[in-house]
Computed example of a mutant assay.
Amino acid sequence: MDGPPPLLLLLCLLHFSHNRNLFTQRMCCKRQSHFVYIGQDISGSPVSVDVGVCRSHCGRTRTGPSPEAGQEDYSKHTSMLEFLRSKKTRMRRPAAPSGLEPPNQLPSCGASQVCEPAGMRVERVLLFEGPRQVEVIQECQCEIKLTQCMRVPALRTYYAKTPYETVIDAGGCSRSKGPPEGFSCVPTKFDSALIQTPNKVELIQTVLACELKESCSRVKHVDYYYQTVQHADGVAEKRLKEIDVGRCVGSCTAGKRCLLRSPTNPEICYLWSEGQSSSCVPQDYESHSFQDQQGQTRTVLSITSCSCQS
């Protein structure tokens, strides 16, 4: 019996190689644990959340303790100082020889792709100072690396695993950077979406468009007000007044750093510190005065410029 034609054999080999590469990408671009300390709960106990991180490298085996183990150890201590002292004592043990570490391998997503979150869920955590929303990565996948500034889909799941579970495309901006130093792809147009919650209807802000701007900059944001205009003949006319109140968008360096790393794998961080916060806030403003529907003088402030401040 004759064997398969050479062309058919070549196609089978190509199909097998393609499927193997896809399998490798999906297995290597995956979510890994990444715990972040967010504060204390109403009982005073420390609260850390596994927000996750997308890793795109293959072949690296974890020889030290897992982040989950570090999280369990941390929850047993009453203060962060006690936790760090305990970890410092454990880190004095001799580390494994560097020769046992497997060699680094190439990224699984390829040169034209990046390992990005494929879905996020928004968790609500009740802290001592009040409720807080935390975005948690659900899964990761290889995405095409964008070189232009544009709006990209960003799925957010609210009230997951409840009767009120809702998935919204909140939108985001690509991570492309502009040629001038200090420019970033930031949102410039916004919209809103309504979701049903156990207590009330909640308004969620979504991103409509993005532009390449300075990392901290002002964008247009219009609000409408009712204005009463008094004419010379004594007739009062009601008009709709439009004011560009502005909005500050962009990011500022927050000084985030790792407080405690794995003694055997420096890429693993057990505890992060947010450091001194720096946010993009209004720097200059101007006032707009007018008469409202009741004839009372109302003053609205609008942002004219923004800057990074601690």
Rank of each mutant, 00 (worst) to 15 (best):
D2P: 13
G3D: 12
P4Y: 11
P5Q: 06
L7T: 09
L9E: 12
F16P: 01
R20Y: 15
N21C: 13
L22Y: 09
F23I: 13
M27F: 13
C29G: 06
F35E: 03
Y37L: 10
I38N: 03
Q40K: 10
G44H: 00
G44I: 00
V47D: 01
V49S: 08
G52W: 00
C54Q: 04
R55K: 11
S56M: 03
S56C: 01
C58H: 01
T61A: 09
R62D: 09
R62Q: 11
G70K: 07
G70V: 11
S75N: 10
T78C: 15
T78K: 15
T78F: 15
S79P: 10
M80K: 15
R85M: 10
K87T: 08
R90V: 15
P94V: 14
A95D: 15
P97V: 08
G99Y: 09
G99R: 07
L100R: 04
P102D: 04
P103N: 07
N104L: 13
P107I: 00
G110P: 01
S112Q: 04
S112D: 04
Q113P: 00
V114Q: 04
V114S: 05
G119L: 11
G119D: 06
R121E: 08
V122P: 02
E123D: 13
V125P: 00
L126P: 00
L127G: 03
P131E: 05
I137N: 03
C140D: 00
L146Y: 12
T147F: 14
Q148W: 05
Q148F: 06
C149N: 01
A154G: 08
T162V: 06
T166R: 13
V167A: 14
V167R: 14
V167C: 11
V167S: 14
I168F: 10
A170V: 09
G171Q: 01
S174D: 02
S174R: 01
S176F: 04
E181D: 04
G182V: 03
T188P: 00
A193T: 08
I195W: 03
I195S: 03
Q196L: 12
K200E: 14
I204P: 02
T206V: 13
V207C: 02
L208V: 09
A209G: 03
E211W: 02
E214R: 10
R218E: 02
V219Q: 01
V219R: 01
K220S: 11
K220N: 07
H221A: 07
V222K: 08
D223L: 08
Q227W: 12
V229M: 11
Q230A: 12
D233C: 06
G234E: 00
G234D: 00
V235M: 04
K238P: 02
R239Y: 05
R239L: 10
L240V: 15
I243N: 04
G246E: 07
G246Q: 07
R247V: 08
C248P: 05
G250T: 03
S251P: 02
A254Q: 13
A254S: 13
G255R: 00
K256Q: 09
K256E: 09
R257Y: 11
C258Y: 05
N265R: 07
E267S: 12
E267V: 09
E267L: 11
E267C: 06
Q276H: 07
S278Q: 11
V281A: 12
P282S: 12
S287Q: 14
D292H: 04
Q293R: 12
Q296W: 10
T297Q: 14
R298A: 12
R298Y: 08
T299S: 13
S305N: 08
S305D: 07
C306Y: 02
Q309D: 04
Q309G: 06
